[in-house]
Structures are given as structure tokens and as C-alpha cells.
Amino acid sequence: MFPTPIARARPSVRTIYMFGLPVSLFIWLIPLLAVMLTSIRSAGDIAAGNYWGWPQGIFLVENYMAVFQNSPIAAFILNSFKVTIPTVIGAVALSCLTGFALGVYRFKANLLIFFMFVAGNFVPFQILMVPVRDLTLKMGMYDTVTGLVLFHIAFQTGFCTLFMRNFIRALPKALIEAARVEGVSELRIFWFIVLPLMRPAIAALAVLIFTFIWNDYFWATVLVQGEHAMPVTAGLYSLNGQWIASWHLVSAGSIVAALPPVAMFFLLQRHFIAGLTLGAVK
């Protein structure tokens, strides 16, 4: 193990480490802690300029109630779910198919198509912006959740295919060969043999895509205008404009907006990290 385990270090070093760990964590998270603390402050605290000191009383319930009552944030969050969940399902489903095709079969265009997905996944969004917005307008889906979902599914298929294909490549080939010898059709091989083995990859991708899409801000501003379809990221920004100097509300809103992906991360951490670090070890 590198670096040397702290248990083997000198006692003085160990003490410094055990002390330094929580301190560095605290410093690292100061921005977040400040937001949490502010989200339970009173308006009076903010007016008095008490931003960083201990709050004068805890206004947790009041502030969060105010956020939900005075703003459409509940609707924004619902929109975020309406965008995120279908995207996760769609992108994962499509990439199970493409990943299987590219991971199992050998044909001429294989690598070319695979590289197309990989390269497309890395392009700057701006090169897609004008045509995609135009296409969405023409299909009558501008300013709708559906328009946003369709784009997200298509774009995320790139990353998901990269992931799925590499995952399937690593599966034992003998399983598929044996089934073929038995005369099992290709469709059934996919459905009954490969798909059950892909569960960990599906879980990892689902968590990761959920976070990506939930946190998307750019496309939410490009393809959506009105509040009725606006996800919480874009919504929070517009609320920030309305709540000038009401930092306790902005903070509470930020926390509400950040909660779903954070919860997802802590519940499914193992899958999340497996998805994110794909390729970091070989």
C-alpha cells in the first residue's frame, strides 16, 4: 500500500494525521457548511450581516416552508424528475443494445461506430446547440420536457455505449460461444445470457446518468424557456434573481435542489464510483 499505512508511522505523525484529517475535511467543506448554516438563519440575521457567525435561532422549518410556498421549486423538482428518470431508462436501454452489438460481434465498421460514439460524447455542447434547438422547435417540442428528454437520451447514449461495450468485452466469451453451439438465437443470447450479467453496469450507469442529467444546466436553458418545463437547476438560477439578498432562501433552495443526487450518491455509492472510475484501472 502506498503511502505507508499510518499505523506503521511514528506516533507523532499518527497524531498529526488523526488531527489533520477532520480539519482538512472541515476546510474542504466550508462552502457547503456555510450554505447549510445559512439555510437555517432568520431574515433578521441576514439583514444584520450575520453571515458567518452562529445563527440567532434556528429557522429550519420556516425557511424551507417558505421556499416551497413562495416559489415554484416543487414544480421545478418534479420537472427534474420528469426529465431525469426517462433519460436514465432510455439511455441505459439503448446502450445495452449498442454495447452488446459492439462488444460481442466482430465486423468491419465496429471500431468506427464505437469511436463515433466516443468522440461524439466529448464534443462541446455549443456545436450542437443551434441545430438541436432548431430541430426541437421544428418537432414542436421546444419548451417541453419531452424535447429535453429526447436530446439527453441521444447524447448520453454516447457515454453509456462506451461504458457498456467495455463492460461486455470483459465478460467471459465462452458463455456466448457455448450458447451459440447449442443453437440459441442471438436475440435470446442477449436477453437471457448477457443482459442478466450486465446488472452491475446498469446500476452504475443509472446512478451516474441520474446525477449528470439532474445537474444539467446548459440544455435546460437552451431547450426550455417557461417555468412549466424548467428543471430545478435553471429554476434555482431564476429564483436567485428574484430573491436578491434573501440568502437564507437561496441557500435552502440550493440544498433542496442538491438533495436528490446527493441521496442517490450516498445510497448507491459503490455503483456510482464504479461508473465514474471506469477505465481508471486496467
Binding site: 462552502p31 450554505v35 439532474w214 444546466y217 437547476t233 434555482l236 438560477y237 442538491a258
Partner: peptide
Amino acid sequence: FPFVISQVV
């Protein structure tokens, strides 16, 4: 943690 929360936040 910081990676999980939105860049807006």
C-alpha cells in the same frame, strides 16, 4: 461531495 452537487449550486 462537491462533485455530486450541481455547478449551479
